[in-house]
Amino acid sequence: MGEYEPTIIAFVCNWCTYTAADLAGTSRLAYPSNTRLIRMMCTGMVDPKYVIKAFLEGADAVLISGCHPGDCHYINGNFKARRRVKLLKEILPHFGFDKRRIRLAWIGASEGVDFAKTMREMAAEIKELGPTEVREQMVL
């Protein structure tokens, strides 16, 4: 086994962050390949259970990233996402998941550079934290 590489699940919205990720790619910006993007139509449809499931299946971190406030294609989906992230950051730490493993970001369609930077930062931070307990131990 090589060096530990964290797995980051990123729920990104179709209109902003997914486009930003696409831009990062076409601009040939480098960002860690351990990110698994899941394209959603809106961050407002990220049910807390998706995040919970990701962690229980061994994800080391979860990013939810969508449009800047006011830019949501569906007017306010990102605000709903923000409340849910707030909620998850209350629940998950009680079961041993570090708060830093859940992240919310606003990355607009033109911000490919910002997307690559966020992913690099996040990967570095999670690498330092190490794998989650779920990954280390077999959790039934």
Partner: peptide, 19 residues
Amino acid sequence: PPLSVFREVEYNELTGGKD
């Protein structure tokens, strides 16, 4: 009920102070 509502400006610490 907390998850039925939202405000435009709140909890911006979640996004590192970005609104």
